[in-house]
Amino acid sequence: MSGLASDDLTPGSDEHWEAVHTGLAADHLIALGQVAYWSARIDTTLPLLAAALIRASDRPRTRKQAEVVGLTFSQILEKTSALVAELGAADQVRVLFERDASAIQKAMEDRNHLLHAYWLRGPREPAMAQRTRREGTTTTPFSAADVERVAVNLANLSDRLWLTYAVADGILEYQEVAG
């Protein structure tokens, strides 16, 4: 690839692929893209749910208490959990949210490990995701199928969170049928 400027790289060409090749298999990269997509949907929906709960509440709040923009995911999840806790125990939004909240938190932690990791590449599966935090460095093997499972889990939780938001905001009427 010597002597090629980035403008000389035609997408799909051998030179382009060589320039951007990560060492990860295509199925790994596709699954990582799915993780990014579905987690972004959760990141977008959670503040909407918090805002809907704030609007629906009779409790007066200061501007700062009502703020959900510019917070981290964990801060928004904490705020949303507190808002949900104000609802009655049998409230449908509370039941829906509490059913999924810990799974959402875990799935987003998995997402962070996958998307904020340095990937140690090798010729064989599984690839290793290495992430350094204050607590130390964690190296975890993730096959493409493992990453895909995280993506599917995020997709399902994203849909369930959107349903909870839609019920809280009055967009949908929803009733679970005992089966």
Score class of each variant (00 low, 15 high):
A144G: 15
Y37I: 15
T132E: 12
K79S: 06
A82F: 07
K64S: 14
A89C: 08
F97I: 05
A51Q: 14
E86W: 05
D169Q: 08
A107P: 05
Y118N: 15
D27E: 09
A127T: 06
D7R: 10
R59W: 10
D58E: 14
L53C: 06
G3K: 13
D27H: 07
I42R: 11
V152M: 02
L4Y: 13
A168V: 06
E173T: 13
L29A: 08
A51E: 15
Q175H: 10
D14F: 02
T164P: 00
V167N: 06
W38T: 13
D91L: 11
L120G: 07
G33R: 14
L87F: 08
V84I: 05
V95A: 07
R99V: 03
R41C: 14
I42K: 09
A117I: 14
E173I: 07
G33W: 14
A117L: 11
V69L: 14
N112F: 01
L161F: 02
K106Y: 05
S39P: 11
E135T: 15
R131P: 00
D14M: 07
V177I: 12
R149H: 11
S13Q: 01
H116M: 08
S6R: 08
G170D: 09
S158T: 00
E176M: 10
E135G: 09
R160M: 02
A26W: 06
R134Y: 09
R160P: 00
E15C: 02
T132K: 13
R111H: 09
L87C: 04
F142N: 03
F73E: 01
A50D: 10
L49T: 10
Y165R: 07
A145Y: 01
F97H: 04
L77A: 08
L161D: 02
A51Y: 09
A52N: 10
V35Y: 12
Y165N: 08
I54C: 11
D91W: 13
S39Y: 14
A168Y: 01
G12S: 09
T62Q: 12
D27L: 03
S13L: 06
A178P: 12
T10Q: 13
R121M: 10
A26R: 02
A129G: 09
L163S: 01
V152P: 01
S102I: 05
W38V: 15
E86P: 10
A101I: 02
V152I: 08
K64G: 14
T137N: 04
G179E: 11
H28I: 04
A36S: 15
L163R: 03
N156R: 00
F73W: 03
E78K: 06
D146N: 15
L71F: 04
A51P: 00
W17R: 15
F142H: 13
V95H: 02
L120K: 15
E148Q: 06
L9Q: 11
A50C: 07
N156H: 05
G88K: 14
H116D: 08
N156C: 07
E98R: 09
F73D: 00
A5Y: 03
A103S: 08
